[in-house]
Design a protein around this nucleic acid. Structure first.
Length: 737
DNA sequence: CCAGGCCACCTTTTT
DNA sequence: GGTGGCCTGG
């Protein structure tokens, strides 16, 4: 008692304690230091949620003497996981490699790799992404003789995923007498069988399987229960049924769980997330403590006020009142664009101004509802030579050429991967046609074997035509050769070899002009990615996994994070969903139109509408200093012109927070621009977009669009009295007002 | 058997 | 606008 050492330790601890909590406010401090085992932190946007998580972990380690290996931290995205690990390392100044931090999917994957046998999976199981899954389903429908028109593959996929999110296996379903349900069930069942046979695991399966692993193997469960003395969960409001059940198992009996969430930011209901889990939590962990973080440190007063006002229109909230010390700041700029091009023009002009005033591109984000909206902004940014980066959309590992290469690599890893087999059997084209592939499928189906095995069987039988037989034998030989060549060389050399020897490089290189070059570049980038692949990130529990398998799993699970130019200072373009958790000094919220945001599919369902509203709340609260909101009065949607009404969310923002941006009347400098069509706003002298004109017969109106040039030039005008009309400039006598 | 062209359908949002 | 499926001519 009271030995020098103990005194020293206590002193050190005290120092650590003060250092850890010095920068925290009362509520944050309480959350970080509470002795309660189970804690629910309701954290409003920008209230220091990640900070609390990171500090809580540091607290556990430094003050509570919990080792890093005893901590499990779950996040929702890879980005968040990476960030959390980095921040903990910064805070503690040690490597956090031994700590389990990751997404639900990543952690589930790790568990399954460590316990493949108990999880009843082959050691070589492969993870497939949703595109792979869709292909598999399409193929399955074919073999079940179900018409794709009557059974849309997308819907089947949705059904299967929804079941898995709920923890329901095909054998648990009761179809009853409904023929539709019966068929759906049949597909689900066959899908499960096929995955089983091919050693394929989809995203939902990762979670479900990991849950079953713990549920059905008491020894495994006990091991992890003892191991993890603290379980922390980020974005708790976005957790689905299986994820919650999994957490429950892990923390059963110890109630050692610390969750952080915000019911107002629940935006993943469409993929099975259940906000209700927040209520379940309070039921299931009776000794829990609730802590609310309500002080916002991110945004200025007007921005926060607008966000609060919008989300206040939702029912059944848990009730948080976000407040801030900050001044009101600049009002929110609201711009009514004539069309989507004008909107892009406006946004980019503002970004230009920001840059001219010394602002950094990295601090700027353009946020939209759906990926398709990015194009206008990309084009505009490109012509203005402002660097930008688009998140989401077709990601690196989702590109066709990359998937082809990966499919070959998968075949190296697992010969019975039917999805990969289908993908590459005739890519690059090698003279194996539908007929032959159908034969192989039939054999596989009849015998219940993989396509690869079926192919070998078919070759053995020797009843193929010479031509088809040769082609097929060539394919089989190719794979076998590759397998040999690939032994004992570096991962990137394997990738390089596969890309070359399979002819993929040549094949994609021959695609039309610019496309081909890009694809070749991508393939080379894949080799590069393999070279840079940090095999050391090979985490504990996955040691037995080969480098190739690691790489393939990485490609499936982290399809997004491979984008280059991470460090370049560039404007960020992303969907509202992927913006969650991020913050920017200057934010553009674009496309606030009925049918776009809120999206058409959500407008007649109150629940989904409320989710859209939360999405809007998320969007607004991304902004730190400046927020600009815009909508277009006319927009090309699916190639058709539409005239949407401004989003209802606009009306929910208090008028005092908003300043409408008037048109710049001076933009009409006739431009010697090369590309006239891409920038109608700049071209065409007096008849520019937004120009008010008057017509002898139709009266007053506003120019919406121009088309053609010279004699052929036409303008689209929205007339006050008669609506929208196209007029030939050469004939219409228009007066500029 | 295959390539290229044409047509229909599409669209939320992500691991 | 973009992609995937289908058809046709080689």
């Amino acid at each position: 008692m009271g030995s020098e050492i103990e005194v020293a330790i206590n002193a050190a601890k005290n120092e650590a304690v003060t250092a850890l909590i010095r920068s925290l406010n009362d509520a944050q401090c309480q959350a970080v230091t509470t002795p309660s085992q189970s804690v629910l932190v309701l954290a409003g946007a920008g209230s220091g949620k990640t900070r609390v998580l990171v500090h809580r972990i540091a607290w556990q380690i430094q003050v509570m003497d919990i080792s890093m290996q005893s901590i499990l931290a779950v996040t929702f995205t890879n980005k968040a996981a990476k960030e959390m690990r980095g921040r903990i390392e910064d805070l503690l100044n040690v490597s956090a490699r031994s700590m389990w931090i990751g997404t639900f999917h990543g952690l589930a994957h790790r568990l399954l790799r460590s316990h493949a046998k108990q999880a009843k999976l082959p050691e070589t199981f492969q993870v497939m992404d949703s595109a792979d899954q869709l292909r598999l389903i399409k193929r399955l429908l074919g073999s079940l003789n179900l018409d794709e028109d009557k059974w849309p593959p997308k819907q089947i996929q949705w059904y299967i995923n929804a079941q898995k999110d709920e923890g329901i296996r095909a054998r648990h379903c009761v179809a009853g007498y409904d023929l539709y349900q019966q068929n759906l069930l049949k597909v689900y069942q066959s899908y499960e069988d096929l995955c089983e046979r091919s050693g394929l695991v989809d995203f939902g399966e990762l979670l479900l399987r990991a849950h079953e692993l713990l549920r059905d193997n008491p020894d495994v469960l006990a091991f992890y229960q003892q191991r993890f003395r603290q379980v922390l969960v980020d974005e708790f409001q976005d957790i689905n049924t299986v994820q919650y059940a999994w957490l429950r198992l892990l923390t059963q009996g110890q109630d050692n769980i610390f969750v952080v969430g915000d019911d107002d930011q629940s935006i993943y209901g469409w993929r099975g997330a259940k906000v209700e889990n927040i209520y379940n939590f309070q039921k299931h962990y009776p000794d829990h403590q609730v802590i609310k973080l309500e002080q916002n440190y991110r945004s200025t007063g007007f921005i926060l006020k607008a966000a609060n006002a919008v989300v206040a229109n939702n029912d059944g909230r848990m009730g948080k009142a976000l407040w801030t010390d900050s001044a009101n700041g600049d009002p929110i700029a609201l711009y009514a664009a004539f069309n989507e091009q004008d909107e892009a023009y406006f946004v980019v002009e503002r970004i230009k101004a920001w840059i001219n005033e010394g602002g950094k591109c990295n601090d700027v984000a353009i946020l939209y509802r759906s990926n398709a909206q990015s194009r206008q902004f990309e084009e505009r940014l490109m012509t203005t030579a402002i660097p930008y980066r688009v998140y989401g959309g077709l990601r690196f590992f989702e590109r066709a050429e990359i998937k082809n290469a990966l499919a070959y690599l998968r075949m190296m890893a697992n010969r019975h991967d039917d999805a990969s087999f289908e993908r590459i059997i005739n890519t690059p084209t090698r003279g194996i046609g539908m007929k032959t592939v159908d034969d192989i499928r039939a054999i596989a189906r009849d015998q219940g074997i993989s396509l690869w095995s079926a192919m070998l069987l078919l070759l053995d039988q020797g009843r193929l035509t010479a031509r088809a037989g040769n082609a097929l034998a060539g394919f089989a030989q190719l794979i076998k050769n590759l397998d040999q060549l690939v032994q004992g060389i570096e991962l990137y050399e394997k990738v390089q070899l596969v890309v070359e020897k399979t002819g993929l490089l040549d094949f994609h290189g021959k695609e039309k002009a610019d496309k081909g070059d890009e694809k070749v570049e991508n393939l080379q980038e894949l080799v590069n990615a393999a070279r840079l692949f940090d095999f050391n990130s090979n985490l504990e529990g996955m040691e037995n996994l080969g480098e190739l398998d690691m790489f393939l799993a990485y490609a499936s699970l982290e399809a997004g994070d491979m984008q280059a130019d991470d460090f370049e200072d560039c404007v960020q373009l992303m969907t509202l969903h992927s913006a969650k958790g991020l913050e920017f000094k200057l934010v553009f919220l674009v496309g606030l139109e009925e049918g776009v945001f809120p999206s058409q599919q959500s407008v007649d369902d109150i629940g989904r509408l409320e989710e859209e509203r939360r999405l809007c709340y998320v969007g607004i609260t991304r902004a730190m200093q400046h927020l600009s909101i815009s909508y277009a009065e006319s927009r090309r949607l699916y190639g058709r012109e539409s005239y949407p009404r401004p989003s209802r969310f606009l009306r929910e923002i208090p008028a005092e927070c908003i300043q409408e941006v008037r048109l710049r009347a001076e933009v009409s400098r006739p431009v010697s621009s090369v590309k006239v069509n891409t920038a109608p706003l700049q071209a065409q002298g007096q008849y520019r977009l937004g120009q008010r004109v008057s017509h002898v017969k139709f009266g007053e109106g506003v120019i919406l669009q121009t088309e053609g040039a010279g004699e052929q030039e036409r303008v689209q005008i929205n007339f006050k009295q008669v609506g929208i009309k196209w007029l030939m400039l050469a004939y219409a006598k228009l007066d500029v007002l």
